[in-house]
């Protein structure tokens, strides 16, 4: 079960998903805090963030993970991702443009399922990686 986006015969190692980009705003962080229930003040309270030694509020790691997940599901189709893991390499800051990079790194059949492995990265305009991770997705037959 899942959205059919990729075709098994056409999928090749090295294939890249279309890049998606998003400019992070403080309003995003407020909206995400409400949607996720994560009200850590480091993400919405500029005064508290600066008192803690941060230059400003910064993005929720899980928000970045979600942004990258949208790029991933757009590429492999919803309902197909079986595993998704990321390392939170660096913080994200308001006004940064966050862009996805998703590359197919493996193609295999396992337990009767057709699977692709992918490397997933979210980075800013200077090429600094914010999230570095991997995912596995089923390719519906």
């Amino acid at each position: 079960m899942g959205e059919k986006k990729l075709s098994w015969s056409d999928v090749n190692i090295g294939d890249e998903a279309p890049v998606t980009s998003h400019k992070l705003t403080r309003t995003d962080l407020v909206k995400y805090a409400g949607a996720s229930g994560d009200f850590n003040p480091m993400h919405h309270d500029e005064v508290a963030a600066q008192a803690a030694g941060q230059p400003s509020v910064f993005g929720h790691g899980m928000f970045s993970m979600g942004l990258l997940a949208s790029a991933l599901t757009d590429f492999v189709g919803v309902g197909n991702v079986t595993r998704y893991q990321v390392r939170f390499a660096r913080q994200t800051w308001p006004d940064e443009v966050l862009s996805s990079k998703i590359v197919i790194t493996g193609k295999r059949e396992e337990g009767g399922q057709q699977l692709v492995d992918l490397s997933v990265t979210l980075s800013n305009g200077d090429g600094e990686d914010k999230l570095i991770g991997e995912a596995t997705a089923a390719v519906p037959g």
Binding site: K31, Y32, G79
Partner: peptide, 27 residues
């Protein structure tokens, strides 16, 4: 919040097109 516009998250009709009985939640 995510800016994800996939209809599978809002429309049962779209969800059924992808093989789900009804709307699903983002993973």
């Amino acid at each position: 919040a995510m800016g994800d516009e996939n209809p599978v998250y809002v429309s049962d009709v779209a969800a059924r097109r992808y093989g789900f009985d009804q709307v699903i939640a983002p993973p």
